[in-house]
Simulated assay, not measured.
Amino acid sequence: MKHLLLIGIGPGNPRQITLEAIDALNRAEVFFVLDKGAAKDDMLRLRKELLERHVNRPYRLVQVEDPLRDGEASDYVGAVQDWHRQRAALYGRLIDSELADGQSGAFLLWGEPGLYDSTLRILELVEHQHFSLEVIPGISSVQALAARHRIPLNRIGEPLTVLPGRRLAEQAQIDNLVVMLDGHCAFAQLEDPDLHIYWGAYLGTPDELLIEGPLLAVKAQILAQREQARARKGWIMDTYLLRRR
């Protein structure tokens, strides 16, 4: 039987890969890497550097173009589901043509495979393939954000909510909340004077940006730095925690 490894490699710092992940890297004969275009060459380069640094056995690197998702579709869920089906078809072809029976293949996944990563859901859609699956956890951007700001994620007796940016406006009360995938900067629409924000971008990389303070006092600074960084690099990965003081 073919074997797949989903390996969490952390949010960007190559030293944050775990010993378990390094062991898993050295069990794979084939690594599948999705090319997301020239704007995201940094992400591809880091994956290749991790392999060169940590893998001490022969391996093959299979690099393919990632299907594009319609980011402007009015039906967000439908667009994501269609994108997942395209990826599932691609993964099925890769497993069929690039992985021999008895071999192990691996996907190197940013952050933590179980938190806002779609690979597990996509593999459930792969048809006519039989393979075993193993997930190796990684450090998430949420953990890295708290560490870099030197704060605990939770407060005593309070829950911690994690949600995507498109769901922020639905929150009637914000007490302790982490926002991911906020491409439209939903925090900029909030006018609550009691909210404090801990924001970070490119966490763990040389381009890391960190800003914290009362939301109303610093949100213009975050928007400006975010726009400058995106223009400079062509992409941005950021997350933040909103907390009622």
Rank of each mutant, 00 (worst) to 15 (best):
H3G: 01
L4K: 03
L5F: 02
L6M: 14
L6H: 07
P11K: 00
P14M: 10
I17Q: 04
I17G: 00
T18L: 09
T18S: 15
E20S: 06
I22S: 05
N26E: 15
R27G: 00
R27M: 13
A28Q: 04
A28L: 03
A28H: 02
E29K: 14
V30R: 06
F32L: 11
D35K: 01
A39G: 09
D41I: 07
D41G: 11
D41L: 08
L44F: 12
R45Q: 15
E49Q: 15
L50N: 06
R57I: 10
V62T: 08
E65C: 08
A73Q: 06
D75E: 09
Y76N: 02
A79G: 05
V80F: 05
V80S: 14
Q81R: 15
D82H: 13
D82V: 10
R85I: 11
R85G: 09
Q86P: 01
Q86F: 09
L90D: 12
Y91N: 00
R93H: 07
L94W: 10
I95F: 11
S97Y: 03
E98A: 08
E98W: 02
A100R: 15
A100Y: 04
D101L: 13
Q103Y: 10
L108N: 01
L120G: 08
E124I: 05
L125R: 15
L125T: 08
V126A: 05
V126Y: 02
V126L: 04
E127C: 05
H128W: 13
Q129F: 02
F131C: 06
L133R: 14
A144K: 07
A147G: 14
A147K: 07
R148K: 14
R150W: 04
P152N: 13
I156T: 14
E158T: 04
P159E: 11
P159W: 04
T161V: 13
G165M: 10
R167M: 04
R167P: 04
Q173T: 13
N176I: 06
H184N: 15
C185R: 10
F187G: 02
L190N: 01
P193F: 00
D194T: 10
I197V: 15
W199M: 01
T205M: 12
P206K: 01
E208G: 03
E208N: 07
L210M: 12
L210N: 07
I211S: 00
P214W: 07
Q225N: 15
R226T: 08
A229H: 07
R230W: 04
R230F: 03
R232E: 13
K233L: 14
K233C: 12
G234Q: 14
L241A: 08
